[in-house]
Design a protein around this nucleic acid. Structure first.
Length: 407
RNA sequence: GGAGGAGUACCCAAGUGGCUAAAGGGGACGGACUGUAAAUCCGUUAGCUAAGCUUUCACUGGUUCAAAUCCAGUCUCCUCCA
């Protein structure tokens, strides 16, 4: 049987590992319990998280046991290595709600039956932690001198860092210790930005329990342009279909940079590597085929076969001419609103395509808005029932953003 | 607790009385070119049914015909000292 370590390595997930050879051997011979932490800072997981979920799925497939650790407790502090505008403190209610959403989403990807995977909230132990006990047991093992030399803190030194945030490392390390004790968890995974946080736990367990555990980080999802993957003009790509529709996800993946295709196929799909390489070799406009496969596969994994199919249909028909709306995002509106006629700008706003009337005017002046593929020339235009065919009207913003109005 | 410095739009950053809705860069958006790609070029980037008007330069109040710019107070952050 293939060692999952080799699979992860071949597909390009791995960034840094402690004791690579030992870990590889361990993963090859027994079922290992491992964990990844998810801080509940938003009410949905993102495409960035999906990369981590992919790793968990690979691991579970290979017979290892994932623990998804929801950061109900740590989120109350906030990881200081995340960008500095994240300092706002979230309420417990928000965090709990977010954690419950994460839980729902994670259940789609991992098999939680018969304890094949666990979902645990670190609030369970952080909530009622006794400060003195914690400091005597855990705090004594952390050297401030060492912590200050970490990049994640160094960057923060000139911007201010409170003790509140400084203690984040201790909490995350303590998490690892708890999971080690309670569930024999021997491995922590995370994004490459988590390396020092993970090593904190690794060190702690070594000191307190005199045992060796392992750490592994993966490359963050970045594009060839060096920017963070999963961020768009309209914000983040979410896994929640309410927040990012399957069609949008499909389009996002369909539009990735040529240079990213092979990488994303490898990281975000389960296609065998020979197939990935084959698709990656396509050149010129041929590579569009690879992008279609990528978009389809990712949408299928996240939203299921049916949605992937619909998104692909919609994309094909829109970009090749014949009108089959499939699963293009749409807004349902009331007929009566068009009796008197509705100002085009108002319509765009209702469809959420623009943020202000000024933006709408600008777009129209620049020729960026089309209705049923006819360029809108005047921003004073009024839309009436006559503009609809079969109760539908297709708005297009720019080259590739489509939105339907149904009445 | 003491001394000094800073707070400008999505981000970085110029601007120290009127010519400033605020230079420049990044990002983003629209157009051209393409392959629903990249690169390049052009344009846009506070709000408003808009050649005019309204609200903006941490906050509050003041000086002035006129304030991002001057004064007073408040808040937040940074640096050094204790």
């Amino acid at each position: 049987m293939d060692n999952v370590f080799d699979i992860l390595s071949e597909r390009g997930y791995i960034d840094q590992v402690t004791f690579e050879d030992e870990l590889r051997e361990l993963l090859g011979k027994e079922s290992v319990t491992f964990y990844i932490g998810f801080d509940a800072t938003a009410d949905s997981l993102t495409l960035g998280h999906f990369l981590q979920i992919m790793v968990m799925m690979h691991m579970q497939k290979a017979g290892h046991r994932p623990i998804a650790l929801l950061g109900g407790g740590t989120t109350m502090i906030g990881d200081p290595s995340e960008r500095n505008d994240m300092r706002k403190i979230m309420t417990k209610e928000m965090i709990d709600y977010n954690a419950s959403q994460f839980k729902k989403q994670l259940s789609r990807f991992l098999n939680f039956e018969e304890d094949k995977a666990l979902m645990i909230n670190n609030r369970d132990w952080l909530q009622n932690l006794n400060f003195l006990d914690f400091m005597r047991e855990t705090g004594v093992h952390f050297s401030v001198n060492q912590m200050l030399s970490l990049d994640s803190y160094k960057n923060r030194l000139d911007q201010g860092l409170t003790f509140f945030e400084f203690s984040y490392l201790l909490m995350q390390s303590y998490d690892f210790l708890r999971l080690y004790r309670d569930h024999n968890c021997k491995l922590q995974l995370g994004g490459s930005d988590q390396w020092s946080n993970i090593l904190g736990g690794y060190d702690l367990i070594r000191k307190v329990e005199n045992d060796k555990v392992y750490a592994m980080t993966f490359n963050l999802l970045t594009t060839a342009a060096g920017t963070k993957m999963g961020k768009t003009q309209s914000g983040t790509i979410w896994l929640d279909s309410e927040k990012t529709s399957p069609y949008e996800l499909y389009q996002y993946m369909r539009n990735v940079d040529d240079n990213d295709v092979e990488k994303f196929l490898s990281l975000l799909t389960f296609l065998p590597m020979n197939k990935v390489k084959e698709l990656g070799r396509l050149e010129g406009s041929e590579i569009n085929k690879a992008k279609e496969v990528l978009a389809y596969e990712v949408t299928r994994l996240i939203h299921g076969e049916e949605e992937a199919e619909k998104s692909q249909q919609a994309a094909k028909s829109l970009f090749t001419g014949d009108q089959d709306e499939g699963s293009i995002p749409f807004t349902q509106m009331d007929k009566s609103q068009f009796k008197e006629g509705l100002w085009i700008i108002d319509l765009l706003r209702k469809a959420d395509l623009i943020k202000s009337n000024g933006e709408g005017r600008r777009l129209i002046q620049q020729g960026g808005i089309r209705i049923d593929d006819v360029k809108v020339k005047d921003f004073r235009d009024i839309i009436t029932l006559e503009d609809f065919t079969d109760g539908k009207l297709l708005l297009r913003k720019g080259k590739k953003i489509y939105h339907q109005i149904k009445i």
